[in-house]
Every structure is written in structure tokens, then in C-alpha cells.
Amino acid sequence: MLLDGLARLGRSGLGALERLGRAHLLLAGMLLGVGEILRRPGLLAAQVFNIGVLSMLIIGVSGLFVGMVLGLQGYYVLAQFGAAESLGVMVAASLVRELGPVVTALLVAGRAGSALTAEIGLMKATEQLSGLEMMAVDPVRRILTPRFFGGLIAMPLLAAMFSAVGVLGGYFVGVGLLGVDSGSFWSQMQSKVDFHEDIVNGVVKSAVFGVVVTWIALFQGHDSVPTSEGVSRATTRSVVHAALAVLGLDFVLTALMFGD
């Protein structure tokens, strides 16, 4: 009994290691496919469209509301200490450092990541990937690589849009509705938010999230069991794994970047 349990533990451990290995091989394959992107920029444009342009609406609306909530909540807390002028700092710093990259990554994982997984999984289930292989076309380079780089490009831009719209939302609530002084809103923000430490790090964060979210989505699709049940499970796993990875990595990156 004990040995059986041990064997089962060992087997699942080995299985996980094997999956991890396959995922890294896939990543290496996609990175090596970068030449393909340069030869056919049209493929990349189509994927930036799918992942980026089609996510703009949800990112813009969410950013606006998150910024407005930050403005409202921040005002009530800061006003107790007579520091309502710092509202701009609070809204901007939390958006640029954390909420922008993280919430954008979660939204993209839900909207575009799941779609990528389902698309790749169905292409596998309907033998389109094998069909490409039989036409002597590498599906990793032709189908997966453009999607990977599309996600990598789209994510930081979406995160920047989220933060920018969020700051404007915070401005609207704080200055427009609650009467914080417009001048100090901006000047405090500018004196405390640092370009290198906050903005650049935020962009780096969201680029990392872009890699992770699209990588997980594509791997889950590529590794899915080619049946309708397998694809549906892979889609669920894609979103769950991507969300966990983003939150976990966010902690690690924050510790590395802002920990001094």
C-alpha cells in the first residue's frame, strides 16, 4: 500500500517534469521561430490584432473603473490623514506598479489566452497541425510563433493603456467629483512616481506576463488531448494556470524590482 502510494507520487512527479520539459521545448521552438516572423510580418499583425486590438475595449473599460475605484477609496483613506493631495501618487503608483500589469494579464489570459488554447487545441483535434506537418510546414513556427510574439507585443501596450486610462479615471473622480486640487494631484504624482523604477519596471513586468500568459495558453492547446473534452479541460487549465503564474510571478518580480 505504502509502496503503491509512493509509486503513484513518483509517477505524477515524473509526468509533471515531462510536461515541463515539453513546455520548455515548445518555448525554445517558438523563440527560434523569430526568423519566420521577420519573413512574414503579416502573420504577426493578424495575431496582434487578435490579442491586442480585440482586447482594447475590455482593457479600457476595466482600467477606467479600476482607476475610479482607486480614486474613491484612496480619497476616503487619505482624507482621514489630511493627505488628500497625495491621491494622485496613490492612484498612479498602484496602477503603474501593480494593477496595470497584473489586471491586464488576468484579463488577457481570460479573453485571449483561453481563445488561443481552444484554437490550437481544435486545430490539433481536427488534424490541421498534423496536416501542416505533412505539408512539410512546422506548425510551431507557422501557427504558434506568431501568436506568441503577438501576445508579447500586445501585453505591455495593453497594460500601458490600462494604467493611463486608470489614472484619468482617478483624476475624474478625485479632481472632478471630490474636489482634490488638480495642480497638486499631478505635481505630487510626478514627484513621487519615478520613470525608471515605476514605469519601466511596470513595462518589464507586463512583458514578462505577456510571455507567460501566451506561453501557457499555447502550450495547453498544443499539449491538449485532441478531443472535445480534452480541449475544454485545456482551456480551463490555461486560464487557471496563467492566473496563478501571473500572481506568483508578480510577487517575485515585485520583490526583485522594488525590494532594493
Binding site: L157, A160, S163, Q190, V193
Partner: peptide, 26 residues
């Protein structure tokens, strides 16, 4: 698609520029 992608990239860079110039101390 290309036009929309161009628009998307431009919007993204405008947002970054806004963050850099208006929000941060750059």
C-alpha cells in the same frame, strides 16, 4: 487588420508616453 494594428500600437505608445511625461518624473 494592418490599419487597426497600427492604431493599436500608436494608442499603446501614446499611453506609455502619457505615463512617462505626465505621470512620472521623467
Amino acid at each position: 487588420i494592418e490599419i487597426l494594428v497600427g492604431l493599436f500600437m500608436a494608442t499603446g505608445f501614446v499611453a506609455l508616453f502619457f505615463l512617462a511625461m505626465q505621470v512620472s518624473n521623467l
